[in-house]
């Protein structure tokens, strides 16, 4: 573990803090984009009940996509930079978020939904003020699953020359420096745990206490 605690590795433009920040940036931007795509899609399909088969099928197909290949293909087509990294990671993050949203909305008690319609809510109100708040625990479940995967997988950004903690893993491999590889692995795992704790806190703050017993597990 000497490599990790050597002060020389904690400063400069290629120091550990910079790599950590790059990694966090990849993670958050990816999650934002993925959520912006997957939550409306999952919510729409869950609400209308149409196209559920497509959502499940699409999620499974996307899950099978090897992220490395997607990354390389986008690099070959669009050139280097952060764009290919985001494409690959967003594709990775969409399935769990979409599946969580879809499942969450489908799982809302039909009696509750009928009651909302009964008191004169419009469809948009039913979705935004009843179904989504009630589905939040499962949405968070999907979202946190996606976050864990993205933090772990953002490591491959380094394969095409981009930054992040993957640099430590890839440079360690190239130099056969075991300490550096290990430092990369440990930092990514730590970051994953911290990010998950952060979202767990956010979940506590934003989910109605009435739903809590369902939501404690994160993953159902």
């Amino acid at each position: 573990m000497g490599w990790l605690f050597d002060p020389a590795h904690w400063s400069g433009t290629t120091g550990i803090p910079v790599r950590l920040l790059e990694h966090l940036l990849y993670t958050f931007v990816t999650l934002l984009i993925a959520a912006a795509i997957a939550i409306p899609l999952g919510a729409f399909v869950g609400h209308t009940g149409r196209g559920g088969f497509v959502v499940v099928g699409l999620s499974n197909a996307l899950r099978a996509l090897p992220t490395t290949a997607v990354l390389i293909l986008v690099v070959l087509w669009a050139g280097l930079g952060d764009f290919p990294v985001y494409v690959a990671l967003v594709l990775l993050a969409i399935p769990p978020i979409m599946a969580g949203t879809y499942a969450g909305i489908r799982a809302v008690d039909p009696v509750t939904v009928d009651a909302a319609r009964g008191v004169g809510m419009r469809e948009s109100g039913v979705l935004l003020r009843v179904e989504i708040p009630n589905a939040l625990p499962l949405i968070y479940g999907g979202f946190r699953g996606a976050a864990l995967q993205v933090v772990a997988t953002a490591t491959i950004a380094a394969y095409t020359g981009a930054g992040g903690l993957g640099r430590l893993v890839f440079d360690g491999l190239a130099l056969q420096e075991f300490g550096q590889m290990l430092a990369g692995a440990v930092l990514v795992a730590l970051l994953a745990v911290l990010v998950d704790l952060g979202f767990a806190g956010l979940q506590r703050l934003t989910v109605s206490p009435g739903l809590r017993p369902v939501g404690t597990g994160g993953k159902r």
Binding site: V151, A152, G166, V169, F178, M181, A185, V188
Partner: peptide
Amino acid sequence: NILFTIPSIALIVITPV
């Protein structure tokens, strides 16, 4: 859960050592 957060790339690179 902890094992699952270790990136596959890192684990595959470290295992041989």
